[in-house]
Design a protein around this nucleic acid. Structure first.
Lengths: 206, 206
DNA sequence: TGTAATACTGTAATTATATACAGTAAAATA
DNA sequence: TATTTTACTGTATATAATTACAGTATTACA
């Protein structure tokens, strides 16, 4: 399913909230009025776009004949609980039960991809990217990553969060986002480097 | 509430099943067809009777404007969807539907308190706290706040995110978390200051 | 650089729908 | 027994709503 534009997302939200509040879908005129469109056809075309992208169905000829398709239906709120991982001691696997602080139900659409776990950050090596101590980073397990991505990796059995890149000789360079720390250069053949996952985002609490 | 006749019970059931199966209420013609009435007015009058007995409401002028009253309502889906608010133009209310990008189902335990909405950050005034452009801040509507808290406020109708404090004379001081910006001092009596809410946390996507 | 997709305005026709009015008839209720 | 309620038929009409057609302008994309 293609991604929705911001406007399409808004239209979809309006349909949902109309269903929730009033009990039935909006008309084209309702939509146009809400967003200030001067033509009901603007709404019509947004609906067609949503239908094309598979999020709604339009029942031809029926007034208010807008049906939310399965995944977007109000009824199914998916349970997507992922663990919050605290401090991981050297040599221990990431998802060992002992490290799980609690679980959080993270909506799939919160980050660009579905996260596998949340890792509580220790240290200040990534503050220039807005990642501070005790923040949670959303991590997706991956076997590969691209230059510039924020990753979670094991280096000699220690879990670390850094920005990934490679130099001309094919060596891995791990950069901290903090001028206090200098780069780590690793030879993937000799050194003990293991990619735990890619960082999708950050959750920060005040 | 008076008791329903058998026929009225049937009509009510039809409305419910129509809502469940199709997602919206039936028309008078739909009802008439289902029961074999030769006039839509038969359905109309049953609806009037149901309204009189308090089990439904009829929204005059709206097609399919049949609303089930509380006790007969179908849905009890408790989700915690909160809207993502994009750019809010000066003078406009925060939660106007037009600003809603989409909604996210945020678990109540994600932040220290339940957020009312997520606001997409514009500008770099809070980068020292790890809040960057396009991050989402989780906001709880509050009427009061404490010194040191990150708040969302209106200053002369513009929405702004700052750290809140007061000086000895009781004036409000809004601090940016960025040395580029200097403090804003406001006299709460004269200036147009309105507290939209308190920032509970940040969601950041890479 | 051309093409598709997005995001609308504007008009208008057709159909869908609500709803008023005028009846008939049986059953329930005061 | 008179009256209201229930349960319809039948007709008609205003308006609610869908939806086609003809445009314009901008942005995304290949």
């Amino acid at each position: 399913m293609k991604e929705l534009t911001q406007r399409q997302e808004q239209i979809l939200e309006l349909i949902k909230s109309n269903l929730e509040l009033k009990g039935f879908p909006p008309t084209r005129a309702d939509i146009a009025k809400t967003f200030g469109f001067k033509s009901p056809n603007a709404a019509e075309q947004h609906l067609r776009a949503l239908e094309k992208k598979g999020v709604i169905s339009i029942l031809s000829g029926a007034s208010r004949g807008i049906v939310l398709n399965e995944s977007h239906s109000l009824k199914n709120i998916k349970n997507n609980e992922i663990p919050i991982i605290g401090l991981v001691a050297a040599g221990q696997p990431m998802l060992a039960l002992e490290h799980v602080e609690k679980k959080l139900n993270i909506p799939e659409t919160m980050f660009r991809d579905n996260a596998d776990y949340l890792l509580r950050v220790k240290g200040d090596s990534m503050i220039d990217l807005g990642i501070h101590e005790d923040d949670l980073i959303a991590v997706k397990k991956e076997k590969e990553c691209k230059a510039g991505q924020v990753i979670v990796a094991r280096v000699n059995d220690e879990v670390t969060v850094k920005t990934f890149s490679k130099n001309k000789e094919g060596k891995i360079i791990l950069k901290a986002a903090n001028s206090k720390y200098s780069d780590i250069t690793l030879d993937p053949k000799n050194e003990d480097f293991f990619l735990e996952g890619v960082c999708l985002g950050v959750i920060k609490s005040f």
